[in-house]
Computed example of a mutant assay.
Amino acid sequence: MAHDARVLVSELVTNVYRHTRTAVVRIDVAVNPDYVRVAVWDDAPRSRLLGLPVFSEGDSGRGLFLVECLATRWGIYRPNTETRSRKGVWFVLDREGRDGDVP
């Protein structure tokens, strides 16, 4: 699980840099007996919103596809212009032999 978490965080941070060129990346991690939940946020409200994961045969473009394949669950935070909330991606990895619910 730790390897998968490292791969996914690396992919998501790389996506933030490649698509927003922002120097501000926020990573939130919650560790629970049943699961680990990670959220990666960017601070670039005008950059493009994320789409659905697709498989790419090129050298890039597989970040969300890897999240889809490795994470137990995942989703996207869409920004709210009224509250100036950030956008980001979260994922959950269940800990070994666990199947806990995530709020």
Rank of each mutant, 00 (worst) to 15 (best):
G97T: 01
I76P: 01
G61M: 03
T22Y: 07
G63L: 01
E82Y: 06
T83Q: 15
W41V: 07
R26M: 03
R46D: 14
G97N: 06
R18H: 14
V89Q: 08
G88T: 08
G51M: 05
G51T: 04
W41C: 06
V36K: 00
P103M: 12
R98M: 13
G63K: 04
V102S: 10
V24W: 08
Y35V: 07
G58K: 10
L64P: 05
T14C: 08
V102Y: 06
D28V: 08
N80G: 11
F65D: 12
T81A: 14
F55E: 11
T72K: 03
P103Q: 14
L70M: 02
V40S: 02
R98N: 09
V54N: 14
A39D: 13
E96M: 03
V67C: 01
S60Q: 00
V29L: 15
T14N: 13
P103D: 15
V40G: 00
V92H: 01
V36P: 03
V40I: 05
L50V: 10
L66M: 12
R73H: 10
L66G: 00
P79I: 00
G63H: 01
E57Y: 01
P53Y: 09
R95E: 11
P45N: 06
V102T: 13
V38P: 09
P103Y: 12
R86E: 06
Y17E: 12
D34A: 11
S85F: 03
T81P: 13
A30H: 10
F91E: 01
G51N: 04
P53G: 04
R18V: 14
V24R: 15
E96T: 08
R48C: 06
G97H: 03
V67A: 01
L50Q: 08
D42M: 05
R84Q: 15
A71S: 02
G51I: 08
V31Y: 02
D59Y: 04
D94I: 03
R48A: 13
G63M: 00
E57F: 04
S56A: 00
R48I: 03
P79A: 03
W90H: 14
V25D: 06
T20L: 03
A39G: 13
S47A: 15
N80V: 10
F55I: 00
V89R: 05
V89P: 02
R86N: 11
L52W: 14
L52S: 13
G100K: 02
N32H: 13
G61K: 05
R86K: 13
V24C: 06
A44I: 00
L70R: 04
S85G: 08
V16M: 07
D43Q: 12
R18A: 14
V24F: 09
D99P: 02
V38F: 09
V40P: 02
Y17N: 08
V92P: 01
R78F: 14
T22E: 11
D28A: 11
R84L: 11
G58H: 06
K87R: 14
V25K: 02
N32L: 09
T14L: 12
G75P: 03
